[in-house]
Design a protein around this nucleic acid. Structure first.
Lengths: 198, 198
DNA sequence: TGTGTCAATTGACACAGTGTCAATCTAGTC
DNA sequence: GACTAGATTGACACTGTGTCAATTGACACA
């Protein structure tokens, strides 16, 4: 049989992704995922200790299959501060659409589950590092608006790039993915970069 | 006895506020609220059909006791576009701290409850009206950055003023209430107002 | 051919929280 | 003294997570 241990595990992860994609953050039950994966509900618990652990693993799994590191490369390679900021926001605007259903689910779980909260904080800390690097590049060019310190500017950019912000722009405002990406960059630039008045 | 119908109702609302304040959005159960109000759990259902209805009523109740309309007056009175925008963000930055625990609870309920979602969308529509008015005043002064239309600028401001954004600035970034208010205004101005480079 | 192992299945159950129901209690009112 | 209405009590249905124990079926080793 082609169904060894790791096979089942990845089928569960794939089923989780499909279900989240289809039904959105809430309303996806352990039983739904099991059925979708073609295994029993208990088989899921054989591989993941809890719903939260499954969600977090599923998110990590898409990170890998999407090539998070590879996608991050352009922004790391950018030399100028402005270019780096633009590239970073562009990367994130292209990445969030692929992960936001997982983010949604974890964000909801977060309220009542310390593990989910910790996993999310971890991930957001990594995002903040990216923001910090972009802001540092900007400051290095002397292009940071004078009312920001590198610290506060990092915080501001970090806040701007939160997943709920993307969701709001995308769904509440009804912006297309391309519009969201472009305008999100503009917002970041206008907020942080000196001499941007047009 | 001093316990007539409307008395019990408002005691429940007050208890809801206290519990949310104390324990945050999640983890506040109907039974907790009942105990806090000094009534039975069923008495709560006698006054509110569901948890969602209670949360929404509680939020409306603080709106009234806080004088939402009165607090909104300064921004409505402002003449210049910049002043109006500043006053509006200042109003909101002063208001969110008082209501964000209710917002949190409703936002969480929203994912699995259509009523909560509808109530929240309603409220957000009202916020958007405020944003629209501020942007219109700005545009009227010719002070709107050229890359925005009134529509897109309204959306952008609306997104910036979402409660999760405030929560992130306040708690994840660790900004004080005053810092959050001041910098939130700056972010809005930099994003929307032409000729703001410093 | 027999034995051991391990993933997976099945069905039962504990637990928490929301919401419902019916019987009963307790004031105030006419 | 009967009526009414809000409140109480206790039981229960329902949903979803997580646990447990007994069993099945496939493969491996000898």
């Amino acid at each position: 049989m082609s169904r060894d241990q790791s096979d089942t595990r990845s089928r569960i992860l794939a089923a989780t992704a499909r279900m989240l994609e289809r039904k959105g953050g809430q309303g996806v039950r352990m039983g739904d995922i099991a059925r979708e994966a073609g295994v029993s509900r208990q088989a899921v618990y054989l591989h993941f200790a809890s719903r939260t652990e499954l969600l977090v693993a599923a998110l990590r799994h898409v990170d890998e299959s999407l090539g998070l590191e590879r996608r991050l490369a352009p922004s790391r390679a950018a030399t100028g501060g402005r270019e780096r900021l633009c590239a970073f926001v562009a990367f994130w605007a292209g990445y969030v659409p692929d992960i936001h259903v997982f983010a949604r689910a974890i964000l909801l779980a977060r309220a009542s589950d310390a593990d989910a909260d910790a996993a999310w904080c971890d991930r957001m800390a990594a995002l903040r590092d990216g923001c910090q690097a972009a802001v540092a590049a900007l400051a290095g060019d002397g292009a940071l608006r004078s009312h920001w310190t590198p610290e506060t500017a990092t915080d501001a950019l970090w806040a701007l790039l939160q997943v709920p912000m993307w969701e709001h722009l995308r769904f509440a405002c009804g912006w297309s993915e391309a519009e969201t990406a472009e305008r999100w960059q503009t917002m970041a630039m206008d907020m942080l970069v000196a001499g941007q008045s047009r």
